[in-house]
């Protein structure tokens, strides 16, 4: 082994040990085509968390470079901040509060608090994380709920939906174009 190789081996060993010392900080899984929607339903209030790789929503994962890309990032961020990501059949849900986190760059404006994180040393993958609090006046969880996500972002091939309501917990997997989940059916 040449000295340079030894150094490299040592270096990578150090990197590995440094990584395992904080095992609780394993990088999260990141799978294109796959996204997750978690719904916590309490009376007329829905708290939801939507996480997806940026690729599903934008078609790229690097920071927005061109003006077009920046515009796209803004458009998607605004949509995620303003559209209820789940809704009743009558469409009665309104967004009370929304936070959109992402690392794709672009200018932030509007009422959604898009955060422009800059992590140059992190991996090339980036994720969107949206939290919303919805108010749905005539919410009956035993009836079907719909989500516009699979229609708006056809890149999402399967959307894992998990829910909690007074009737218990459950999950379902929506394919492309499928929009309805029925917590009450379980």
């Amino acid at each position: 082994m040449t000295p340079s190789k030894v150094t490299r081996a040592l270096l990578s060993a150090t990197v590995l040990t440094a990584g395992s010392a904080f095992a609780s900080n394993n990088p999260g899984a990141h799978q294109h085509g796959h996204a997750e929607l978690q719904l916590a339903i309490d009376g007329n209030q829905v708290d939801l968390i939507f996480t997806s790789p940026a690729y599903n929503l934008l078609g790229f994962e690097h920071r927005a470079r061109s003006d077009e890309q920046k515009a796209l990032v803004n458009q998607v961020t605004n949509w995620l901040g303003q559209t209820p990501l789940t809704n009743t059949r009558e469409g009665s849900c309104t967004v009370m509060n929304a936070v959109v986190h992402h690392q794709a760059g672009g200018d932030d404006h509007g009422h959604n608090h898009g955060h422009d994180h800059d992590h140059p040393d992190e991996s090339s993958h980036s994720d969107f994380e949206v939290t919303q609090t919805l108010s749905c006046p005539d919410l009956k969880p035993s009836e079907a709920l719909s989500t516009p996500i699979t229609i708006r972002f056809p890149e999402i091939e399967n959307l894992n939906v998990e829910w909690i309501w007074s009737g218990g917990q459950g999950s379902d997997r929506l394919g492309q174009g499928e929009t309805r989940v029925r917590p009450g059916a379980q």
Binding site: Q38, A40, I41, D42, D47, E162, I164, Q169
Partner: peptide
């Protein structure tokens, strides 16, 4: 206590 917090 408050199940709506479960995911958080």
């Amino acid at each position: 206590d408050r199940q709506i917090l479960t995911f958080r």
